[in-house]
Amino acid sequence: MIAAMELRHLRYFTVLAEELHFGHAAARLHMAQPPLSQRIRDLERELGVRLFDRTRHKVRLTEAGALLLEHARPVLQSAEAAHEAMRRIRPGESGVLRAGVPPDTVPATLRTLVAEFTREAPDALIDLQEMTTDEQLAALREGLLDAGMVRHPCDTAGLECGPIARRALGVVLPVDHEQAGAGTVDLRDLNGQPLVIFPRAMAPRLYDHVLSVCGSAGFRPGAIRHARNPHFSNGLVLAGRGVHLNERPHSGPPEGLCWRPLADTPLSWQTSTVWAPRRRHPMIDVFSEAATAGLAAAGHLTGAEGSPL
Rank of each mutant, 00 (worst) to 15 (best):
I2N: 07
M5R: 06
M5V: 15
R8Y: 08
H9D: 15
H9I: 00
H9E: 14
L10I: 04
L10N: 03
R11K: 11
Y12E: 12
T14M: 06
E18S: 04
H21T: 00
F22S: 01
F22Q: 05
A25D: 02
Q33F: 00
P34Q: 08
Q38E: 09
E46T: 10
E46M: 14
V49N: 00
V49F: 02
R50Y: 00
R56V: 11
H57T: 15
R60V: 13
L61T: 05
E63T: 13
A64R: 08
A66M: 07
L68P: 03
L69W: 07
H71N: 12
A72T: 13
P74G: 11
L76G: 07
Q77D: 15
Q77E: 15
A79F: 02
E80T: 09
A81S: 13
A82G: 07
E93K: 06
V96P: 00
L97Y: 03
L97T: 13
R98D: 02
R98L: 06
G100I: 04
V101N: 01
T112N: 04
T112G: 01
E116D: 14
R119G: 13
L125A: 11
T133C: 05
D134W: 00
A139H: 08
L140Y: 03
L140K: 03
E142N: 07
G143K: 05
L144S: 11
D146E: 07
G148I: 05
M149D: 02
M149C: 14
V150K: 05
R151P: 00
R151N: 09
R151I: 14
D155Q: 10
A157T: 14
G158M: 09
C161V: 11
I164T: 15
A165G: 13
A165P: 02
A165W: 01
R166Y: 04
A168N: 12
V172M: 15
D176V: 03
E178Q: 12
T184R: 10
L187Y: 05
D189Y: 00
D189G: 07
D189F: 02
L190S: 07
P194C: 03
I197H: 14
F198R: 14
R205F: 06
L206K: 01
L206W: 11
L206M: 05
V210A: 03
G215Y: 01
G215R: 10
A217H: 10
G218F: 04
I224Y: 01
H226C: 10
R228H: 09
F232G: 06
F232Y: 12
F232M: 12
F232W: 10
G235P: 05
G235H: 07
L238D: 03
G240L: 09
G240W: 07
R241T: 00
R248Y: 01
S251T: 12
S251N: 12
P253I: 08
P254F: 01
E255M: 00
R260F: 08
P261F: 07
A263Q: 15
A263D: 12
S268G: 13
W269R: 06
S272T: 10
T273W: 02
T273I: 01
W275H: 10
A276F: 01
R280A: 15
P282K: 06
M283V: 05
V286N: 01
E289H: 13
L295Q: 09
A298Y: 04
A298T: 06
A298L: 03
G299C: 08
T302M: 01
G303M: 09
G303E: 13
E305F: 08
E305L: 15
G306I: 08
S307R: 15
L309H: 13
